[in-house]
C-alpha cells in the first residue's frame, strides 16, 4: 500500500512563520519513511489541506496519514481537522484516511524544551 503523510498546519498571515515547519518536514522527507510527504494549511497559506490531499492522491496514495502540526488540543485538532478529513474521505472513498496524534502530544517535545533551556543556560 502506498502511504502518504499529510502534515496539517495552521498557517500564518506572515508566511515566513512557516520556515521552521518546512525545515522539519524536509527532515521527515529525508528519513524516507513515507514515499509521499505533503503539507496542507488550514488558513492563510497554500496549498490548503484539501489541495494537499489532492496532491497525495494524484501521486498514487492509497492511504493518507494526516498529522496535526499543532502543539495544543483545541477546536482545530478536535473538530476542524477531522471535518476536513471526513470531507476528503467522502471525496475519495477508495483512499484510506487516518489521523495521527498532534505534535505537542509526543514525548520528544520534552527533549526539545530541555535543549532550549540548556541553550540559554550555556
Amino acid at each position: 500500500m502506498k502511504d502518504a503523510m499529510l502534515v496539517m498546519v495552521h498557517g500564518s498571515p506572515r508566511p515566513i512563520a512557516n520556515t521552521d515547519m518546512f525545515a522539519v518536514v524536509d527532515v521527515v522527507r529525508e528519513r524516507g519513511v513515507y514515499p509521499i510527504v505533503e503539507v496542507g494549511f488550514m488558513e492563510c497559506n497554500e496549498p490548503s489541506i484539501p489541495q494537499a490531499i489532492d496532491r497525495c492522491v494524484e501521486q498514487g496514495a492509497q492511504r493518507v496519514i494526516a498529522v496535526p502540526y499543532f502543539l495544543h488540543t483545541g477546536m482545530h485538532v478536535t473538530d476542524d481537522l477531522p471535518n476536513l478529513l471526513d470531507q476528503a474521505q467522502a471525496q475519495y472513498p477508495e483512499v484510506q484516511f487516518l489521523m495521527g496524534d498532534y505534535l505537542g502530544h509526543d514525548p520528544l517535545l520534552a527533549d526539545v524544551i530541555l535543549e532550549r533551556a540548556k541553550q540559554v543556560e550555556a
Binding site: 503523510m5 502534515v7 522539519v24 518536514v25 527532515v27 521527515v28 529525508e30 528519513r31 519513511v33 513515507y34 496519514i65 498529522v67 496535526p68 502540526y69 495521527g100 496524534d101 498532534y102 505534535l103 502530544h105 509526543d106 520528544l108 517535545l109 527533549d111 526539545v112
Partner: peptide, 11 residues
C-alpha cells in the same frame, strides 16, 4: 530535528 521524529511517531 527531533520534531521530525516526533511527527513520524505521531503518524
Amino acid at each position: 530535528p527531533a520534531l521530525a521524529d516526533a511527527l513520524l511517531a505521531c503518524a
